[in-house]
């Protein structure tokens, strides 16, 4: 649980635990309106809760995964105004009006996006755990750079770790999706 825990930032002596419920009630909560996948969502969250936690725990958007919760693996990538950012290091209170996109905001099973289609066809997802993050980072890349070179793809996705694929099929899938988007 690499979580923010501002109210418990200092280790408490045992006698202080009696006060924990009090502390808990004192947690500052904010009513926020977030725009996620094109929908406005109103939520009441403790100010120290990360976007990752809010998405997964409060909004049921469990497509966003986590591998470290410390900004070291890229697995929790979401798009904020179209750019990949790490949801484990974002506080919703700092986001406000930004447009947040998670993997659930790409195509659904009924209508895959070209990237999702290419990932599926080429076997770019094995265990699939890093896949949502890869898709989002690649989506952002192709919007900015419809004809990326291999090197550009590698550099754009270099904040996202994968342990299954050796990245080979992911790079190929991004290339395929780029080509199809250009010619389709």
């Amino acid at each position: 649980m690499n979580k923010f825990d501002l109210r418990l930032a200092r280790p408490y002596a045992p006698q202080q635990f009696a006060m924990l419920n009090e502390l808990y009630r004192d947690v500052q909560r904010e009513a926020l309106r977030l725009r996620v996948n094109g929908e406005d969502v109103e939520i009441l969250v403790p100010v120290h809760k990360t976007l990752l936690e809010v998405l997964r725990e409060d909004m049921g958007l469990t497509g966003t995964k986590h591998g470290c919760e410390l900004g070291e693996c890229g697995t929790c990538t979401v798009l904020v105004d179209g750019r990949p950012q790490l949801s484990c290091l974002l506080l919703p209170i700092q986001l406000g009006r930004n447009e947040i996109t998670t993997v659930e905001g790409l195509g659904g099973t009924a209508q895959l996006t070209p990237l999702q289609q290419a990932f599926a066809e080429l076997g770019a997802a094995q265990c699939g755990y890093c896949t949502p993050a890869m898709l989002l980072a690649a989506t952002s890349l192709l919007r900015q750079e419809p004809k990326p070179t291999r090197q550009t793809i590698r550099e754009a996705l270099a904040g996202n770790l994968c342990r299954c694929t050796g990245y080979v099929k992911i790079v190929e899938a991004v290339e395929l999706a780029a080509e199809r988007t250009r010619h389709g």
Binding site: F4, L6, A9, G71, E72, L89
Partner: peptide, 22 residues
């Protein structure tokens, strides 16, 4: 917050208040 937040989670800082500049 990309450097500070991981450090807060690891309890390397224990501020009472955070002031966001964003």
């Amino acid at each position: 917050g990309t450097d500070l937040y991981p450090k807060l989670k690891r309890r390397q800082f224990d501020p009472d208040t955070l002031i966001g500049l964003s």
